[in-house]
């Protein structure tokens, strides 16, 4: 096991172990690494373009967004970034809730709140990318 991360909750004293065996935690662990590598390029590229290149954030406005989303390349970039970052972040927060919320009820409701708000953000973002209208207003 690595020093800097804990792939399974075996190392936690008192960790709850599910009765039935499931590979979900393994897949979640693999997903964090695979999505992480892809996000390094998508997110750092996004931050470089938006915050540093060519005047950075000062040049961003509605027309700038319209110009970018006229291209399927940036639509797909942003859609992939939205889904991967949201799932990566939601899974990260799920791990943190499991680690620190001690009462079963607290864990359950914190995770429900997390899943509902994440689903809302993913759907809203997807809808915005697919229904964007450059001639609005």
């Amino acid at each position: 096991m690595s020093v800097s991360d804990r792939p399974l909750d075996l190392a936690l004293p008192g960790a709850r172990r599910s009765k039935q065996r499931s590979n979900f935690e393994l897949y979640s662990w693999i997903f964090m690494r695979v999505s992480g590598i892809v996000l390094v390029f998508l997110v750092l590229g996004h931050l470089f373009i938006m915050n540093i290149l060519d005047g950075g954030v000062q040049r961003i406005n509605f027309a700038f967004v319209a110009g970018r989303w006229a291209s399927p390349f940036w639509q797909i970039w942003d859609l992939a970034m939205l889904w991967l970052a949201m799932l990566h972040g939601t899974n990260g927060l799920r791990t943190i809730i499991n680690d620190y919320a001690e009462r079963d009820q607290t864990r359950f409701w914190l995770k429900m709140l997390l899943y509902v708000s994440s689903a809302f953000i993913i759907l809203l973002g997807t809808l915005v990318i697919f229904t964007f209208d450059p001639n609005l207003g």
């Binding site: 973002g125 809808l127 915005v128």
Partner: peptide, 8 residues
């Protein structure tokens, strides 16, 4: 995501 949604 919420602030970007204002483009709609």
């Amino acid at each position: 995501v919420l602030d970007t949604a204002l483009v709609r």
